[in-house]
Computed example of a mutant assay.
Amino acid sequence: MRRLFDEELADLDTSFKEMGLLVSETIQRSVQAFLDHNRQGAQEIIDGDQAINQREIALEKKSFEMIALYQPVTTDLREIVTILKAVSVVERIGDNARNIALSTIHVKGNQRVAEIEKQIGETGTLVAKMVADVLTYYISDDAMGANSMSSVSHQVAKDTRSIRDMAIDAMKANPETVEAATDYLVVAGYLKRTSDYVTDIAEWIIYKRTGKIVELNPGTSSFI
């Protein structure tokens, strides 16, 4: 029975990481599609969102089945609960990627601002790396690495505030940039929320490793 449980738990871990890596790649692709004005690429991301949702449903179903069948306790139960909690957060990150893609489809402004788009691209890359890194910390059971996500999240908060300030300045300087600048604000907001979600996953990793509930992102959940 123990061998079967360990095998199924390993499969659950693998499936969770595969879903997370898919979402990390999707975030990066959605930001790039926005910057490239690539509506076709954005539509592909929107169409692919259902596959991410299906992965979440499958992982949740498997988690509940394992709890019911094996009735795990202590460390084993914490590991399954961590996946159960984290998978829903990963799905919300996928929703943010889809929403960025929707912004790409709907964007109307022609007056683009290269400096702001450069910052969005860099921030998007950082956020995608956060997602990939936190999954690595999950697999390696690295509570210290998970804790480091807090400082990266603060950097994302700083970057998105910079995007906000630049977008406001652009609108003041040239009213024709208003539509584009509004889109920049929307995308920056999705990136900020994604970094907040990553710290949520990191908190569950620490719980998995130590059994303690921690707060890694106090007072920084607001985009503004």
Rank of each mutant, 00 (worst) to 15 (best):
D6L: 12
L9E: 11
A10M: 12
D11M: 11
D11Q: 14
F16L: 13
E18W: 03
E18K: 03
G20Y: 09
G20M: 10
L22W: 13
V23H: 09
H37E: 03
H37V: 01
R39M: 00
Q43F: 01
E65C: 03
Q71P: 07
T74Q: 06
T74I: 04
L77K: 12
T82C: 14
I93Q: 00
N96Q: 02
R98D: 00
N99A: 02
N99G: 01
L102N: 02
H106A: 06
G109E: 14
E115I: 07
E115N: 10
I116F: 14
I116C: 12
T125Y: 13
V127S: 02
A128Q: 05
K129T: 09
V131D: 03
V134D: 11
V134W: 15
T136Y: 14
Y138Q: 05
I139C: 07
D141I: 05
A143G: 06
G145Y: 12
A146G: 05
S150M: 03
S150D: 02
K158V: 09
S162M: 11
I163R: 10
I163G: 04
R164V: 01
A180Y: 13
A180F: 12
T182I: 15
L185W: 05
V186T: 13
L191C: 09
K192Q: 11
T194D: 08
D196Q: 08
T199D: 04
T199G: 04
T199I: 06
D200G: 05
D200E: 11
A202Y: 15
W204F: 08
Y207M: 12
Y207E: 10
I213L: 13
I213T: 07
I213G: 05
E215W: 15
E215Y: 15
E215M: 15
P218N: 15
S221G: 11
